[in-house]
C-alpha cells in the first residue's frame, strides 16, 4: 500500500466517509471528525507514518488536503 493509499484509508476507516468525499473533507465537516475524532486521526497518522506532530500542526490540520501539506513537512511522501 502506498503512503497516499494509507492516508486515504485512515480517513475512510476512521470517519466512515467514501473516497469521493475526501478531497473536500474538512474538520467538523462530518459528525465523526469532531475534536475527539481529530485526536484519533492524529494518533493513527503518527503511528502509520512514524512521526510525532507539533501541536501547531495538529491545530492547523483543518482538512484532508491541508493534512497532506502538513505530513510532507515531516518527510512523508504523499
Amino acid at each position: 500500500m502506498t503512503n497516499a493509499e494509507k492516508y486515504r484509508e485512515t480517513f475512510i476507516t476512521l470517519f466512515g466517509v467514501t473516497k469521493n468525499e475526501l478531497q473536500k473533507l474538512e474538520y467538523q465537516g462530518v459528525d465523526t471528525w469532531d475534536s475527539v475524532g481529530h485526536m484519533s486521526l492524529v494518533a493513527r497518522l503518527e503511528e502509520t507514518f512514524d512521526i510525532m506532530m507539533e501541536t501547531d500542526d495538529i491545530i492547523e490540520f483543518s482538512s484532508f488536503l491541508k493534512g497532506i501539506e502538513i505530513l510532507r513537512k515531516y518527510g512523508v511522501r504523499l
Partner: peptide, 10 residues
C-alpha cells in the same frame, strides 16, 4: 503529557 497521551490514545 500532550506528547505521551498520543502514544496512549493509539
Amino acid at each position: 503529557t500532550q506528547y505521551l497521551v498520543k502514544l496512549m490514545a493509539r
